[in-house]
Nucleic acid binder design. Structure first.
Length: 290
DNA sequence: CAACCGCCCTGGGTGC
DNA sequence: TGCACCCAGGGCGGTT
């Protein structure tokens, strides 16, 4: 599941392979891949012909290609989305959803997505808090790797919320880029249970867990990202190595690397949370009780 | 307005 | 062997 480090790996690959090239044609092979582009697939493809790629940017799990005229090609990889740079004429991937070709006849850009949660849209860039971002994602908060990310402001905003800690970490309008994997790893490093109420968390604890999230994502980025189920790959189709470093995520029953107790798995928001029963004891009080 | 729930979607894996 | 079912899950629309 691509989270911030994996999307950043893809962003870097795109920056290296598509910057300063000119699109020739775009082929949408599955309409769901452009469902967020409300004017529809025909509008999407026609407006991209002959457009020049200026820069490739990212905020949280979103990435976008800035085009001429203040527009951007916005992408979200969802659960299983891949962006691959492939030689023109290479066999189509089974789940190829969009093909981008370039005027220089060089390698194509391909969006491959088995589960079709990801997708593209074309959007105007808008100035948000001094930074140009696609208007559709104006509500997405800065991520911890953004030079203008404010840790104290995020700590304060987190403590103003009345919810469970992990829900807050996954709230992309509070801090972006953190998904289920890195939330669980950050909580384990900070020795906090996912159900801890945010409004009762000390500023020091909140700072700690956000710092751990930043740290674990930086480490994952240094190893090329995490490949949990081989669906995530960089633009050359290669997997990262960080999955070998996961302490708790997907490690149910295996010993906690810190204390040796078996990692537990608990239902959380129709999915799973992994944690250490000794290092991360469940909070005694419910989140909203006085 | 903040918080939260359910849904979208596919196919690999599993159990009968 | 085949089939039914489960599971992964980020984001968003709708509801409380």
């Amino acid at each position: 599941m691509p989270e911030l480090p994996e999307v950043e790996v893809v962003r870097r690959g795109l920056a290296a392979h598509v910057t300063d090239r000119r699109l020739r044609s775009v082929e949408v092979l599955h309409p769901r891949a452009v469902r967020r582009h409300l004017p529809g697939p025909v509008d999407f493809t026609s407006r991209l012909v002959d457009r020049h790629v200026d820069t490739v940017s990212r905020r949280g799990k979103y990435l976008w290609i800035s085009l001429d005229d203040g527009e951007a090609l916005l992408a979200h990889l969802g659960m299983s989305g891949q962006l691959l740079v492939q030689p023109a004429g290479a066999p189509d991937e089974k789940h190829l959803r969009i093909r981008f070709t370039f005027a220089d006849d060089g390698p194509e850009l391909r969006f491959v997505d088995q589960r079709t949660f990801g997708g593209f849209s074309l959007d105007d860039l808008a100035e948000v808090d001094g930074t140009p971002v696609p208007a559709m994602i104006a509500h997405i908060a800065r991520d911890p790797m953004d030079p203008r990310f404010s840790l104290p402001a995020t700590v304060a905003a987190l403590r103003r919320k009345r919810t469970e800690l992990k829900r807050a970490l996954l709230d992309q309008s509070l801090v972006s880029g953190i998904g289920n994997i890195y939330a669980d790893e950050a909580l384990w490093r900070a020795k906090l249970h996912w159900a801890r109420p945010t409004d009762k968390l000390s500023a020091a604890r909140a700072t700690e867990v956000l710092t751990m999230a930043t740290e674990v994502m930086a480490e994952a980025l240094g190893q090329g990202g995490t490949s949990f189920d081989a669906l995530y790959v960089n633009v050359n189709g290669q997997s990262g190595y960080f999955d070998r470093s996961l302490a708790v995520y997907g490690q149910e029953g295996l010993p906690c690397p810190r204390c040796g107790r078996p990692v537990r798995r608990e239902p959380f928001m129709n999915r799973s949370s992994f944690s250490c029963p000794r290092c991360q004891p469940r909070p005694r009080a419910t989140p909203s009780s006085p």
